[in-house]
């Protein structure tokens, strides 16, 4: 009988711990979302800057060519 009572008490204790952890997780998730959204808003604020990138496609091809040539040179060396 006493053993059963102990089990009930342990379950209650664990449930309380779990509830506290869930509250903590929810708070962390909310805090994380807040920071993530703030970061996303900051990025969206740079929209004009991204729109104004000059020749991004040419730059992309040039950068890849450089990376490939650099790789080839370093492998030769």
């Amino acid at each position: 009988m006493a053993e059963t009572h102990d089990e009930f008490a342990r379950i209650e204790e664990l449930e309380a711990q779990l509830a506290a952890l869930k509250t903590q997780v929810a708070a962390l998730e909310a805090e994380l979302a807040k920071h993530r959204h703030r970061l996303q808003h900051q990025q969206v604020d740079r929209l004009g800057e991204y729109f104004a990138w000059s020749h991004p496609r040419v730059r992309g091809v040039r950068e890849l060519t450089r990376a490939l040539l650099g790789r080839r040179r370093s492998s030769k060396a």
Partner: peptide, 25 residues
């Protein structure tokens, strides 16, 4: 696009500096 997935947030990495110009008409 913008819902928050329940995963650890990655620290924003550096964006390669673009050739920035003012948006001109």
């Amino acid at each position: 696009m913008w819902s928050t997935p329940p995963v650890a947030v990655a620290e924003p990495g550096p964006v390669a500096p673009p050739v920035v110009a003012r948006l001109r008409s």
